[in-house]
Design a protein around this nucleic acid. Structure first.
Lengths: 281, 281
DNA sequence: GCAAATTTGTTCGTATGTATT
DNA sequence: CAATACATACGAACAAATTTG
């Protein structure tokens, strides 16, 4: 009796799910039925359900029942740019191209454009003074009609002053902003730095991406800082923050010579794949 | 009264935590005290606590109390290799170098070496037949004495046959396996591909990394496939799977010309940073 | 459209077990 | 050993969402 009852019930159900007795999308027995099956109170059954729900293995719907979670197709985004194909980046044109190359349909809402004062974290990356004016362009992206990511790009106001008024227009920039800035100002992106982190979604993100509001599905955040050439070395001219649901997105980056094919999704291996025994630490 | 009571209590405590009234490490009022403060039953208080705990905002310890979660230092790992400094990769020598450069102390357990039959997911990446012999080298890595990551590299048996017997030794390869294979076989890594994904930890990972066993802290997994030159194009010769706690690790990738400094951690921005209003979808 | 039945969600009360101080 | 504090478990009632008749 070392393990609590709710835990043993949860394990039993987990094995049924993982073993395929309960298939994705299938309804679990109701709480009342499980109560009789395991001879436990409804609250204990519910504790077992919560154990499974916190791991996103089941999904409860009031008035209907509890269902085995459906496996979601994981989508792979290539972060490293490939000059030849123009693929890569998870943003703008590059994202659309990769989604199409994988046989899906990309869509994007018209941007919401705002003039803002730079928060510290953005100012630091753009190397402008905190509180100085920046432009933010916010867009929602979809794959096959389903919400996929939220994306916001920040540009220093300086770029508009120098002639890139299009940044202030609430219209999609068809050729991509990097290309637009090249055409308008002759600005060339000579490099970029991606920072990747994982955190729980905020309310807005959870709402748009259709994630449960209990934070059990994290989001992956890609912060891309683009650099232009300058006498003092690479000079940041844009920051793009992209937010993806972490349970159905993977990211790939290539360095040097790699096969030319689009990378497929990994099957969530652990660090002990193939391990026959158990590790001791 | 739209929202349930446990939710409102959780929000109230959340604001106290985020506002700094309750500081990291500080003990929350006991369940009994909160029961009186909010005029709710103990079960309702506990539901509020679970809401916070599932978001890793608080930590309950039997016999002691419930405490505001401590902020962990986030560590940044550079995934793109920098030939000049040798930095980058989150694995082997490169990881040690970056950890030192950031002013911390890296340590690693002696590897556990095993001869295995390749599972499909590894065989596919190594382009060997499923079930063929491969070598796995498993290591636990530490920063400043604290568990940091689990790492397993897989090599085709072919490399040993060709003379790289050191792969089978349960000893750390001081110069790094890529360098070792270069010295021994003249094999040159011409490129690599990193795949990044996020998932809940398995029991072994949670145990070693000190993560709660309820899966609320995900792990980030980096799968690096290294390629050597061959007449048929890049040919995979190793796969390294690294597992990091996602709540205290960030990853950086550089492309093209970027500033030369080590990238600092991002402060978890959302896609609406600076957003004064709210988005409507 | 409405009412009933079903199912999960919330809240209360209570009792007992386990870990820590 | 005793006190404190969280963990587990039971039972009960009502609310809210959904489906069915």
């Amino acid at each position: 009796m070392a393990e609590p009852m709710y835990w043993r019930i949860a394990q039993d159900l987990r094995h049924e799910i993982e073993g395929g007795t309960l298939r994705p999308g299938q309804q679990l027995p109701t709480e009342l039925e499980l109560r009789e099956k395991y001879g436990a109170s409804r609250n204990t059954i519910r504790d077992a359900m919560k154990w499974l729900a916190s791991r996103a293995m089941v999904d409860s719907r009031p008035g209907q029942g509890t269902f085995v979670a459906e496996h979601r197709d994981t989508f792979v985004t290539t972060l490293s740019a490939d000059i030849q194909t123009g693929r890569g980046g998870g943003e703008g044109l590059a994202a659309d191209a990769e989604i199409s190359a994988r046989g899906h349909r990309a869509a994007v809402d018209p941007p919401r454009v705002e003039l803002q004062r730079a928060a510290d974290r953005i100012a630091e990356r753009l190397r402008v003074a905190a509180g100085s004016l920046i432009i933010s362009r916010h867009q929602a992206r979809y794959i096959d009609g389903a919400p996929w990511s939220l994306q916001t790009s920040f540009y220093p106001m300086d770029l508009v002053t120098r002639g890139a008024q299009g940044l202030l227009l609430a219209e999609d920039i068809a050729q991509g902003t990097v290309t637009y800035l090249h055409e308008t100002l002759g600005l060339i992106q000579v490099g970029y730095r991606d920072t990747i982190l994982v955190r729980p979604p905020d309310q807005n993100e959870a709402g748009f991406l259709g994630l449960p509001d209990d934070g059990r599905i994290p989001v992956a955040v890609i912060i891309r800082t683009g650099y232009a050439d300058s006498p003092d070395g690479p000079d940041p001219f844009r920051v793009t923050v992209s937010v993806f649901p972490a349970d159905r997105n993977q990211f790939v980056m290539n360095s040097g010579a790699v096969p030319g094919d689009l990378a497929g999704p990994a099957k969530r291996p652990n660090a002990m794949t193939n391990c026959p025994g158990r590790m001791r630490h």
